[in-house]
Design a protein around this nucleic acid. Structure first.
Lengths: 339, 339
DNA sequence: TTCCAATTCGCATACGTATGCGCTACCAAC
DNA sequence: GTTGGTAGCGCATACGTATGCGAATTGGAA
C-alpha cells in the first residue's frame, strides 16, 4: 500500500509514473495528457485524468520547470505595501497574472541591498520575468538585474539606457497640470512636499510643477520632504506652514502626505482647508474620496498600466533582442473639495 | 565560447558542471561548496566561489528543490489586500520569511473557488508550507488543503476539527471588552456593524459584544452589515442611524467601516462624534490614529502573531503527526477620541 | 489484398543538483 | 613498518517530468 519509501515526514508524493502504472500506460502518456499536447487519444487522456484524480496526483512544477526551463513564475519586487498606489497596483497585478496562469514570487525589499538580493533569488528560481514596483531603483541594482535575472518590467520608474522596459505615467505633465489648476484658482504662493529624494517620479513631478509655475511668473515653490510617510510629512508640512508668508497651496507627492498636511493644518494650526489652504495629492487612494478629506489628487490608470506591463513581459517579440520599450500613460487630475 | 546549445532566446544558464570544469573539480564538489556541507576543503570552496562569481553561476533552485523535496518556498493566500489588517500582516510576514531565507509564493484569492485553486497550485510547486490570510474559509476548502497541500497555518481564523494550526486573537473577549468600555461610558443603545457574514472572527466578536451587553441588562445591539467595505458600510450605518431610537454607540467590525460610519454621521446626518455618537473600530489601521478620525479601536498583536505563525510552520515536531495547535492572543483596546 | 499515411504510444534520455559510497592521501599511534 | 582513522574528493545515481524518435496499430485508398 505504501508507495516506494516514504521518507521521514515527507508526504510520499504521487508521480506521473504512479499514475501511468495505474492507468496501464507509459509515463510519457501521462505527461502528454497533462501538457495538453497531441500524442494521446481522447479516451486515454480521460482515463489518465480519472486515475490522477483518484490518486490526488499533481504534476511537479519544479520538475517540469527544470526541463522546460520555464518556472511558470514571475517575480514581483515590492518596497512599500502601505503605499496605496503600489498596493493597488500589486492587487491588480496579482489578479491579472493569475488569469494568465502564472504564479507569483514576491520579494519584499526594504533597502537597496534587498533590491539586489531579489535579483539573485529570482535568478535562482528561474522566474520567467519580473516586475519591480519600487519608487527607488539605483542604476547599480538595475545593472544587476540585467546581468543575472530575466526580463524586467519597471513599474512607474524608468531607467534610461537600461535594458529594461517600463510602464509609467507622464509625471512632468502631471506636475504641470496641477500647477495650471492652482494658478487658475488664483494662488500665488506654493509649496511642494517631496516623496523619496532621488526617485525619478518625484523629480519629474517637481520639475513639471516648478517649471510651469516659473513659466507663469510665479516664485518657485517652497520645498519640504515627507518620505511618502504620514508622520514625516506631518512634520514637514507643519514647518512649511508655520513660516511667515506661508504657501496657500501645497502639492504633495502622495495622498497620505496630503492627508497629513490637511490634518496638521486643520487640527494643529487651525488653518481651514480649502478656504485658507489648498491641498493636492497624488495617487487617488481610496481614502482620498472619503468626505473627511475629499482630496483633489492625480489618478494613475493602474489597470491599463498593469495590462501593458504584462503584455510587455509576455511579448515574445522582445525576448531575444528587441530594444526595451517604455510605455507612458497620461495621469488625470481628479478635482474634489480640498483645492 | 557559446556553451552547449543556446536554445532560442533562452539564456544559456551556467550550471554547477560548468563551474566544476573551470575550477578543475567535480560537480559534487561545487554542490557541496554551495550547500555548505562538509566534504570540501576551505581552499577549494573558496576557489569554487571565485569561479562561480566570475561565471555568474547561481544554483538552480528548481533542480535542488526537486531532489531535496523542499522548494524553499512558502505560500501565502491573500484575499483582500486593501484590508489594512491583512495588508499589515502580509508585510510583516514577508519580512520575517525573508529573514529565514524562504521565498514566498503569493496567491490572491477573490472567491471560494480561488481559495481551492491556491491549494492546488501550492501543491504543484511543492511549497514547504502555507499561510491562509482570509477572513473566510469554508470547511470544504480547508479539507482540500489537508488532502493536497502541505501544512497550513490559518491566520486569524480557526477551523475546529481541521488538521490545520492557527493563530488568532480572542475575538469573544475583544467584543466583550468593547461592551464593557461602552457601558461604563453610560451608553444604553448599541449598534453592531458586521463584517463578512459567516466568518468566525465576525461571529465571535459579535457574540462577545452582545452577550456582555445582555448580561449587563441592556437590549441587544441593532445589527447592520458592511462587508468590510467602506461604501457598503456607509449605507448600512446610514440606515442604522436614521431609525428612531438610534444607537448612541456603534461597534464596527473593521476600522474602514468605522470611518465610514463617522463620515456618514458627521457629513451626511450632522451627528457629532463623539458627542452624540460613539464609534469603535477593529484593527487599529494606521489611518485610525489620524486626527480626522482619532478612532478608538482594537489592536491585534500582528508581529507576535506572525512570529508564532512562522514558528508553527517551521516547528519540526509537528510535521509528522502532532495535533494541530491553535495559538490565541489577547487583543487590546486602544482608546482614542471617537468614543 | 496491399500499401501508405496518420495516429497513438513507449523507450530512452535529458534537465541540474544532492548524496551515498568508495577510493586515495595523509597523519598519528602503535 | 603496519595499522587505523579521517578528511577530501569523484563516480554514479536519483529526483519527476518533457520530448525526439521509432514501433505498433489503425483506417482507408488503391
Amino acid at each position: 500500500m505504501s508507495p516506494k519509501k516514504a521518507g521521514p515526514g515527507l508526504p510520499a508524493a504521487v508521480t506521473s509514473r504512479d499514475v501511468a502504472r495505474s492507468a496501464g500506460v507509459s509515463q510519457s502518456a501521462v505527461s502528454r495528457a497533462f501538457a495538453r499536447v497531441p500524442g494521446v487519444s481522447e479516451a486515454t487522456r480521460q482515463r489518465i485524468f480519472r486515475i490522477a484524480e483518484e490518486l490526488d496526483y499533481q504534476p511537479n512544477a519544479l520538475a517540469s520547470g527544470l526541463i522546460t526551463r520555464k518556472s511558470g513564475m514571475v517575480g514581483i519586487v515590492l518596497s512599500q505595501l502601505n503605499n496605496p498606489f503600489l498596493s493597488q497596483a500589486t492587487e491588480v497585478l496579482l489578479k491579472e497574472l493569475r488569469r494568465k496562469h502564472l504564479q507569483v514570487l514576491v520579494f519584499s525589499a526594504a533597502g537597496d541591498s534587498d533590491l539586489g538580493e531579489a535579483a539573485v533569488e529570482f535568478g535562482r528560481y528561474r522566474v520567467d520575468g519580473c516586475f519591480v514596483l519600487s519608487p527607488h531603483l539605483p542604476r547599480k541594482v538595475a545593472r544587476l538585474y540585467a546581468r543575472l535575472g530575466p526580463t524586467v518590467i519597471l513599474f512607474n520608474r524608468s531607467v534610461p539606457g537600461m535594458k529594461a522596459s517600463a510602464v509609467s505615467v507622464d509625471n512632468v505633465a502631471a506636475g504641470a497640470e496641477v500647477a495650471d489648476f492652482l494658478i487658475v484658482r488664483g494662488h500665488k504662493r506654493f509649496g511642494y512636499l517631496h516623496g523619496l529624494a532621488g526617485a525619478t517620479t518625484d523629480r519629474d513631478r517637481f520639475k513639471g510643477f516648478r517649471s510651469r509655475l516659473v513659466q507663469a511668473g510665479m516664485a518657485p515653490p517652497v520645498e519640504g520632504s515627507g518620505g511618502y510617510d504620514y508622520d514625516e510629512a506631518a512634520v514637514a508640512s507643519g514647518a512649511m506652514l508655520q513660516d511667515g508668508g506661508r504657501p496657500t497651496a501645497i502639492f504633495c507627492g502622495s495622498d497620505s502626505m496630503a492627508m497629513a498636511t490637511m490634518d496638521v493644518a486643520r487640527f494643529k494650526l487651525g488653518i481651514k482647508v480649502p478656504e485658507d489652504l489648498a491641498v493636492v495629492g497624488f495617487d487617488d487612494a481610496p481614502t482620498a474620496a472619503w468626505p473627511s478629506y475629499d482630496l483633489t489628487t492625480i489618478r494613475q490608470p493602474i489597470a491599463e498600466m498593469v495590462e501593458a506591463g504584462i503584455e510587455l513581459l509576455l511579448d515574445p517579440k522582445r525576448t531575444a533582442d528587441g530594444p526595451s520599450r517604455n510605455i507612458v500613460f497620461e495621469a488625470k487630475l481628479i478635482v474634489r473639495g480640498s483645492a
